[in-house]
């Protein structure tokens, strides 16, 4: 050890050797940032895929919100020529009874996304709430709920949904409730499993020892600590609900005409694919709503991946 660094460490340690004060201890984090600043930092570091996803989602939201302004024609407006080719008055032609495909694509964003969003929110309220109760309670109630969920999950959900929809009728309300209930089984499982890890923490025990009720423990102690995986799951579930609705519509039991919806639009125009050899663009018509579904699903997944990576605290650098 050289003499200079010896002296240096001596002077420094003398300076540090003032009376011990609890407030003077150095915490882990030196700079405190507001939530907004933190968000801006993580946004500026977001990878390209996440930006792509966010831009696509923003575009979809814009389309859904301003559908009546963006669409050239009405949602259910019927024109003289069915199966009109692309170009001219109708950018993407018309469908089997002469409705403008482009306009219906735009309205479809609103309907499909709106219903998917309502369904996902409802499924999170049901599944998340019951999952939390099960995780905190851990007694017969947990057993009962978990086994009931197992039973529900054992039945293929699309077939079960088809069955329930044919029993209760294909109204939008029953569609939302049925898919939400079936989907909430997945949310229940996730919430329960992440919440169980939080329930055993000392701070939850401390809250119980204080005499706090179930509501407080759920809302204030556990929920804030399991938000990241739940938010990520929300994105994924939204995509799946979206696909389920499209699949049901394609099978004819989802959103009923004349309400525009991407799934049923694929079905309605499916026969056009056979005309590929005469008019290539016509064959693309049924693929347009399919592409709209695919693009949104991919975009949501990009954003969710990035968000999960952010919150899991994984480090790439070595």
């Amino acid at each position: 050890m050289s003499t200079t660094s010896d002296q240096m460490s001596e002077t420094e340690s003398n300076a540090q050797e003032e009376a011990y004060s609890a407030a003077g201890e150095v915490g882990m984090q030196r700079v405190r940032r507001t939530r907004w600043q933190r968000m801006r930092i993580s946004l500026s570091k977001a990878p390209l895929s996440a930006w792509f996803g966010m831009i696509v989602i923003a575009a979809y939201l814009f389309t859904a919100l301003f559908a009546p302004l963006l669409a050239p024609y009405g949602e259910a407006e019927v024109f003289a020529t069915p199966f009109a080719p692309w170009g001219g008055d109708h950018v993407f032609g018309t469908d089997q009874i002469g409705r403008d495909v482009f306009s219906r694509l735009i309205y479809g964003a609103r309907n499909t996304m709106g219903i998917a969003l309502a369904t996902t929110i409802l499924s999170f309220i049901i599944g998340g709430g019951l999952g939390l109760v099960a995780a905190i309670n851990r007694s017969w109630l947990d057993q009962f709920l978990s086994r009931f969920v197992d039973v529900l999950m054992a039945i293929p959900s699309l077939i079960f949904a088809l069955m329930l929809l044919s029993i209760f009728g294909s109204t939008i309300t029953s569609l939302i409730i049925i898919i939400a209930v079936l989907d909430s089984t997945r949310v229940f499982r996730l919430t329960r499993s992440v919440a169980i890890n939080v329930v055993v923490m000392d701070y939850v025990e401390a809250a119980k020892l204080r005499g706090e009720g179930l509501g407080w423990v759920m809302r204030k102690e556990i929920l804030p600590n399991i938000m990241p995986p739940l938010v990520a799951e929300f994105g994924l579930r939204f995509s799946f609900v979206f696909l389920t609705i499209a699949a049901l519509s394609f099978l004819g039991l989802g959103i009923q005409p004349p309400t525009a919806d991407w799934g049923s639009m694929v079905r309605d125009n499916a026969s056009l694919i056979q005309f590929a050899q005469y008019d290539l663009t016509a064959a693309f018509t049924p693929l347009l709503p399919a592409a709209a579904i695919a693009l949104l699903t991919v975009a949501v997944n990009f954003v969710v991946d990035w968000f999960l990576h952010q919150t899991s605290g994984l480090r790439d650098d070595h």
Binding site: A22, A23, E25, Q29
Partner: peptide, 23 residues
């Protein structure tokens, strides 16, 4: 009473040292 001051009111536990947390 625990020898800390008001500047700690808005801090999160992750911004405290081990001894401060216990306090």
């Amino acid at each position: 009473l625990i020898e800390l001051d008001d500047s700690f009111i808005d801090r999160l536990p992750s911004e405290l040292s081990g001894g401060q947390k216990q306090r």
